[in-house]
Design a protein around this nucleic acid. Structure first.
Lengths: 224, 224
DNA sequence: ATGCAGCTTATTGTATACAAATGGCATTCG
DNA sequence: CGAATGCCATTTGTATACAATAAGCTGCAT
């Protein structure tokens, strides 16, 4: 992707994810163009992409708005994600290479390290976690599946305020990864899929809890 | 969608589906613009959309080519479709309204009529079949799921020559629909999902057979 | 007051000109 | 003869001007 267009896309996307562009608010092409320092043309490209990714929705007269997902919508996304990632895990179990297994072990060791210390390094955990999952998707070797997963994986990040990361949850995540590694090693696709399903479902409930806390806080801020 | 943009999208899409634009061949924005009688701007929009829908792919230097799917790729698409439609059926079983059930019955009766006569009306069958599936997806009430299904449902249409429609197959399809209707009536999501999985898998094998016949014919045409 | 008509303004859609980047070809040098 | 390099042609990317459309507002009529 070319310079201006990529910049516009990344800028707008991160403005949505960070909450700088509030859910439900209208988006004007020219305003974004100025914010990104490019013309409307690349902005329009970006908006189309973001619309396909459901970060943005348009009303019937083509005006764009930042998507505003309810908790139900997000559960829906998580449900699809669980199904797709379980499918990926199943496929990966048949196809994963020794090298990829090694990489999985590496990232799993790293993310364990990130939380198994007095001062947990959550960003580091998240990064290696992301890479762990990416390797599984790559091993599944289905471009379509990868593209669909892309659509449901980053949506929940739209939580506006800083999330509460429950350490106990992260440790359980790491434990799931351990089990996935064994399932891959045994080439047991059914097992891998089952573990993955639980792994994502837990993520949803952790997210939902953080989300409701967040919502409470915002409500009381409004009241004050 | 506005006039020029919509025209460009529909034109290009149908040129791909009809084989007028050959799989693997390069696509130039200006050529398409002339063909569609619009400027490059709406053509570019369309190309982006079609790229997201995987009808078009781009190499690393941004040149566009008509996607050329192998049978393996198509099996992959069908596999995802089976999973997603089964999921849709399961959700639909819980949510479907009496009215929607009535509509399903109507379309199923129509498609039965289309093939239960001396001179089968295949296009009519396909149309009611499409609507039958659309109602189930609507009843599943998940925008994301619907959008994902859109991505895998129309891909196999890229068969270049006229398809052989095996009547026996269409009758079995109709039978599956009957069974789906009972499952929905009993609100048995698991049953509905199972029937749907088989329904789509059969569609794949019917398609694969037609595809290989098609490929053979093309080969011998080349040889001649 | 309320609702509607017509105007005004805001916003998106399209065309086009120009800039940047890429690929192919020919030429040159090892 | 083969590989690398520079130039030219082709193609895509970006900016901008203008057209079309939709929203909001004002004022008038009921």
């Amino acid at each position: 992707m070319s310079r201006a267009s990529e910049r516009a896309y990344n800028n707008i996307r991160s403005m949505i994810l960070s909450g700088e562009l509030q859910p439900g608010s209208q988006i004007r092409e020219e305003a974004l163009a100025e914010l990104c320092g490019v013309s409307r043309t690349p902005v329009r490209d970006s908006l189309r992409r973001l619309e396909a990714e459901m970060f943005i929705r348009r009303n019937d007269s083509q005006r764009s708005f930042v998507a505003d997902w309810s908790l139900d919508d997000l559960e829906d996304a998580f449900q699809l994600r669980a199904m797709l990632e379980a499918h990926a895990a199943k496929r990966a179990a048949r196809r994963i290479t020794r090298e990829q297994l090694g990489q999985l072990r590496f990232h799993n060791a790293q993310l364990k390290q990130a939380i198994d210390i007095p001062n947990p390094d959550v960003p580091k955990f998240l990064d290696h976690n992301r890479q762990f999952h990416a390797i599984i998707v790559a091993a599944a070797a289905s471009e379509r599946l990868a593209s669909m997963l892309g659509q449901v994986t980053e949506q929940p990040v739209v939580l506006r305020t800083a999330r509460q990361y429950d350490l106990e949850n992260l440790r359980r995540s790491h434990h799931d990864h351990d089990e996935l590694l064994i399932a891959f090693d045994k080439r047991d696709g059914e097992w891998a899929a089952a573990v993955m399903t639980g792994h994502i479902r837990r993520a949803f409930h952790a997210y939902a809890q953080a989300h409701s806390t967040d919502t409470e806080i915002r409500k009381s801020n409004l009241a004050a």
